[in-house]
């Protein structure tokens, strides 16, 4: 047996190398290149001028859009975390009270596979002002709640939350699917044993389902947070970062600085920040989970 498992270094190299090269060329190298350009003042063409850390200094101390957009990115992360408890509850209800849950799970999953542009247009039609046939406002008016009507995407205080809701709506099916699979994987023997001991319903969930689901929940959390740090397409489709920069997040700010303002160097600085920010968040999340797991066990 040992002979079969022993693999020569050459073989390992042959199998690892293509993937490694691919990763280095298409992930690692561009990051390095963008770090390099972040030290330049460059319009994307013509000569680049080395300016040291000036881009970063401007970003951290003077750019009026930068910090608010970081804050909004964090809002979106928080909001997308809110979908996980909902997803868990839905998953438990589905697996316990619905006879053929697969159909429902697939329907919840549907928005995930829709193109973002389609979703953006759909929700724009929902959020539109009543004069443009906005569904939400029309419903509110019909329900006698005229004072609640808003121009949802044109209101600087509300637009970002309107976007958060769409992101939540789109991805909740994804998390329901993950959680549902997790719930299904818990052996029914355990629940039977628990019911003999007098633990049923929510009590059983608190002491059995949740602890056993910890690894699955972790996956959901990491996916939700990292996914929302990269939120970009939906925002571009629905508001383009506006009105008046009120829905700018890190990624849209980077994109607009690069392509609309011709500041490739500065855009690179923002993207470098985003890479570091993602790394820090991942490490933080892992630490938190380690602690949580230790606390449970």
């Amino acid at each position: 047996m040992n002979g079969v498992l022993r693999v020569s270094k050459g073989t390992i190299t042959v199998f690892v190398l293509p993937c490694l090269l691919f990763y280095l060329a298409f992930v690692f190298a561009p990051i390095l290149v963008s770090v390099y350009y972040s030290l330049m003042e460059w319009a994307g063409m013509g000569d680049a001028v080395f300016i040291g850390l000036d881009n970063y200094i401007f970003m951290f101390t003077q750019d009026p859009i930068f910090w608010p957009s970081v804050l909004r990115t964090l809002y979106i992360s928080l909001f997308s975390l809110a979908q996980i408890p909902i997803a868990i509850v839905v998953a438990i209800l589905l697996s316990r009270y619905v006879r053929r849950p697969n159909f429902l799970v697939s329907s919840y999953f549907l928005p995930v596979i829709l193109s973002v542009v389609v979703i953006g247009q759909l929700w724009k039609a929902i959020y539109n002002p009543a004069s443009l046939g906005g569904m939400l406002n029309k419903l509110l008016t019909a329900a006698g709640l005229d004072s609640w009507t808003r121009t949802w995407l044109a209101d600087t205080d509300i637009a970002i939350f309107a976007l958060c809701f769409v992101i939540l709506w789109q991805y909740i099916g994804y998390h329901v699917l993950i959680q549902f699979t997790g719930v299904q994987n818990i052996s029914s023997d355990i629940y039977e044993a628990a019911s003999i001991d007098g633990a049923e319903g929510w009590r059983a969930d608190r002491h059995i389902t949740l602890p056993l689901m910890a690894p699955v929940i972790k996956i959901s959390v990491v996916l939700a947070v990292i996914g929302s740090l990269k939120a970009f397409d939906l925002i571009v489709v629905m508001t383009g970062g506006g009105p008046a920069d009120s829905t700018q997040v890190i990624s849209t700010h980077m994109y607009l600085a690069t392509f609309n303002s011709f500041k490739y160097g500065y855009g690179s600085a923002i993207s470098t920040f985003l890479v570091v920010f993602c790394l820090v968040m991942t490490v933080l999340l892992n630490r938190l989970f380690k602690r949580a797991e230790e606390a449970i066990s």
Partner: peptide, 19 residues
């Protein structure tokens, strides 16, 4: 006007619509 100031300008005018 050069592109970066144009962006300030465009966003500024848009803010008049909503604020």
């Amino acid at each position: 006007i050069e592109p970066a100031t144009t962006q300030v300008h465009l966003n500024g005018l848009q803010s008049l619509l909503v604020d």
